[in-house]
Amino acid sequence: MNTANAYLTVRGIDIDVIYKDIKNLHIGVYPPMGRVRVAAPRRLDDEQVRLAVIQRLPWIKRQRELLRSTDRQSEREMVTGESHYVWGVRRRLKVVERPGGAHVEVDGDRLILYVSPGRSVEQRRAVLDTWYRSQLREAIPGLIAAWESKLDTRVPDWTIRRMRTKWGTCNRETRRLTFNVELAKKHPDCLEYIVAHEMLHYFERNHGERFTKLMDDVMPDWRARRDELNNAPLADEKWG
């Protein structure tokens, strides 16, 4: 079956569209980030797909909220034996309670969290979150520098935030890039894909045909990276 891809933004929601030799249009909302995918018959054009998505927006938003609720419910208890991902590798958490400053170390297949005795779940989680952010702060500058050279452009400012539905954003007015802290849990190739993706928004605002061609030109394997990113676990999971 022959297929073709398109990328639309409908009222702030990014939509992946796959045109196929099928009779009916199908809309799906997928974990972990509530990614919206549309399988559409070839007889439809982008505007017809956009209208169909608008008609289903209430349902799409409900599905995305359900995914966010599930994510909140699955928050880890931050105890020894859980698993947490670091750069795409699953590691067993070991919590060590001892006096002194809190910090995190990677030791083989273990992620060791050192905290003072009696620290709450929220305090333990905050320590790990800070560590994930530090991992990104070390990795992102080199990637930005490489892509600044490749794209002959400059990133004046960037930041890290926890976001529910996006891996990254680009403010074209300020040229500021924002990256989801969850990227520190994914394979480094996924982070590079997001860096390149957001920087290309300097040249093209929307996820249309021109944006797709730009991505194809500078990162031919971007679809594989995108799929790896979106198919990888988002929330931490129990070890086992």
Rank of each mutant, 00 (worst) to 15 (best):
A4R: 15
Y7L: 13
L8K: 04
R11P: 01
D14N: 11
I15G: 02
D21Y: 05
I22F: 04
N24A: 08
N24G: 04
G28H: 01
P31M: 06
P31E: 12
P32F: 05
R37E: 04
D45Q: 00
D45F: 07
V49M: 08
I54D: 04
L57Q: 09
W59V: 08
L66I: 13
L66M: 14
R68Q: 15
D71C: 10
Q73P: 00
Q73M: 07
S74E: 14
E75H: 14
T80R: 09
E82M: 09
Y85P: 01
V86D: 13
W87I: 11
G88E: 02
V96F: 03
E97W: 01
G101M: 10
V104A: 11
E105I: 12
D107L: 12
D109W: 00
L111Q: 01
I112D: 03
L113P: 01
P117K: 02
G118L: 00
G118Y: 03
V127N: 00
T130K: 13
W131Q: 03
R133F: 05
R133A: 14
A146F: 12
R154D: 01
V155A: 12
P156G: 05
T159L: 08
R161V: 02
R162W: 10
R164Y: 06
W167Y: 11
W167L: 09
W167D: 06
C170N: 13
N171H: 07
T178N: 13
F179P: 11
N180F: 10
V181N: 11
L183E: 03
L183D: 01
A184Q: 06
A184S: 15
D189C: 05
A196K: 07
H197F: 03
M199Q: 02
L200P: 05
Y202Q: 09
R205G: 08
N206F: 10
G208P: 12
T212F: 14
L214N: 07
V218R: 02
M219R: 12
P220I: 14
P220T: 10
P220R: 07
R223H: 12
R223T: 12
R226D: 08
D227I: 00
N230K: 00
N230W: 01
A232T: 08
D236C: 07
W239Y: 12
